[in-house]
Structures are given as C-alpha cells and as structure tokens.
Simulated scan of single mutants.
Amino acid sequence: MSSRLSISVVLATYKGAPWLNAQLDSIADQLWVGDELIISCDGGLSEDLEIAERFAKAHPDLRIRILSGPGLGVVRNFEFALSQARREIIVFCDQDDVWKPGKLDLYRHGFREENVMAMLHDASICDADLHVIEPSFYQSHGSKEGFWNNLLRNSMIGCCMAVRKEVVDASLPFGKIPMHDQFLGLQAYRMGKVVFSPKNCLDYRRHGNNASSLKSSSLQNQIQWRLQLIGALLRHSVPKQKAKSR
C-alpha cells in the first residue's frame, strides 16, 4: 500500500448556490496533487454549475471534474458521483457545510491502517450563519460505535465520513435505501474496522433546507427504512478477504 493515499472528494449539489462558494473554498487548500474533486450538480442547475466552473477556472492546479447529476434526488446524485470516483479513499461532501483545516490530513493518517474501511469525525452543529448551536454532534446526537448501534440509530452522517473505494465498489448500485451514508457505513463495518475520531473537522450547517434532518422520524418510517437497509445489505456481498466478525 502506498504511504501517500489518494483521495476523491465527492460533492453533490442541488440548489446549493447560497453556500457552495464557502464550502469549495474550505476544500481547496486541503487537496494534494493526485487527489480529485468531483462536483455533481443535480438536474443541471445553471447557478450551481456556474459556481463550480468558476471555482475550477480559479484553481487550474486542482483535478476537478464537474458532472451533471441524474436529477433524481440526493441519494441517486451521490450514487452517480460515487460511481465516478477513482481514488483510494472517498470523502463525502455536502454543499452547505464548511470544512475545518486538517480534515483530509486526518483521513490520510487514519487510513494507513489497512483494515480501516471507514472513518468519521465530530462536527459543530451551526445555524445558517455558522453560529455554533451545539459544539459536538457526537454529544448532541448520542453517537455510538458499532454495527448494530448504527443500524438502530444512525450516527454515520456523510459530511463527517470517508470510506475506502472497496466499500463503494461493494455497494453499487444502491437499490432502494433511505440514505447513502448509513448504508455505506454499515457496509464498512461488514468489511473491516470503522474509526470514530474525536477530532472536530466540520461546521455542520443547519439552515432549514438540508437534504437530511436531525429530527426523529415516525416509528413507521424508521421501521421501513431499516428494512430497506437490511434488504440492501443482504443483496450486497462483501469481499471475503475483508469480511470479519463483529
């Protein structure tokens, strides 16, 4: 294994213009030569595309790929963008957050351990203007490690997560799932080790129009979503050399 792991940052956008510039600026200085940034603008929205294209033009030294998403919602947009990622480590990125310095360095260091299939970090929950509401997502959410804990109550939010490409390869196409990040996190547990780092690497912006919600869903929806996840996990086998008991 190379001592210098390459990274694909996968950013899915949809009506992200109010926040996209700040997110892209927070990413730019963390990318190394050989890394790539994939920006999938869902539905071909011109304003998102214009921002992405201006950013790419202003950073000719970075490897940036701008794609037109399938226009089928956040899960399918991420599914499409992830299918285009080519690097060893794949980092999920939402359009409305802001990265703190050292986020990608955390992943570069942590994934040197070969059996680590996914890594997560803590985040500050912020309002639309990035004023801190809760200093720790882990504490606010009651985050717990473990496959069964995260099947029952998910703590693996994509904006704070990265996985090895093997996890994505073993998980596409998704089929019917409630959200991509929980599914990929559970797949990572099936394949090896998942690390929850205590480091806070993100301002997690909550502005009322987020694709994901921190509020509890109805019991009926929770049961339905977990049945979908279990069905997807049963449909997707994992490489035998990575499989492990929990």
Results as ranks from 00 to 15, higher is better:
49 L>P: 12
52 A>M: 10
59 H>S: 06
73 G>Y: 08
30 Q>D: 09
57 K>H: 12
45 L>V: 01
73 G>E: 11
53 E>Q: 13
78 F>R: 14
28 A>M: 06
70 P>G: 01
15 K>N: 15
23 Q>K: 11
63 R>Y: 04
13 T>S: 06
41 C>V: 13
44 G>E: 15
57 K>D: 12
60 P>R: 02
27 I>G: 03
88 E>S: 06
36 E>D: 12
6 S>K: 02
8 S>H: 05
42 D>C: 09
20 L>F: 05
41 C>S: 14
46 S>I: 14
35 D>M: 10
8 S>N: 05
80 F>M: 09
18 P>A: 06
71 G>R: 10
20 L>N: 10
54 R>M: 14
21 N>I: 02
26 S>T: 08
33 V>M: 14
72 L>R: 15
31 L>Q: 12
51 I>V: 12
44 G>N: 15
28 A>W: 02
45 L>Y: 02
35 D>R: 11
37 L>M: 09
10 V>K: 03
59 H>Y: 06
75 V>S: 11
81 A>E: 07
34 G>L: 03
69 G>K: 04
6 S>A: 07
84 Q>E: 15
97 D>H: 00
37 L>E: 03
85 A>E: 03
54 R>P: 07
50 E>A: 13
85 A>L: 04
92 F>K: 05
34 G>N: 09
80 F>A: 10
51 I>L: 11
95 Q>A: 13
64 I>W: 08
63 R>S: 11
84 Q>M: 08
72 L>F: 13
89 I>R: 03
69 G>R: 04
77 N>A: 09
73 G>M: 07
42 D>N: 15
26 S>C: 02
72 L>Q: 15
44 G>L: 11
15 K>A: 14
89 I>S: 04
90 I>T: 14
20 L>G: 08
43 G>S: 09
60 P>F: 06
65 R>F: 00
17 A>T: 11
8 S>P: 05
66 I>S: 08
25 D>C: 09
16 G>A: 11
64 I>V: 14
40 S>F: 07
57 K>R: 12
18 P>M: 03
56 A>N: 02
88 E>N: 05
47 E>N: 15
50 E>L: 09
49 L>C: 14
28 A>C: 09
89 I>H: 03
59 H>M: 03
75 V>L: 11
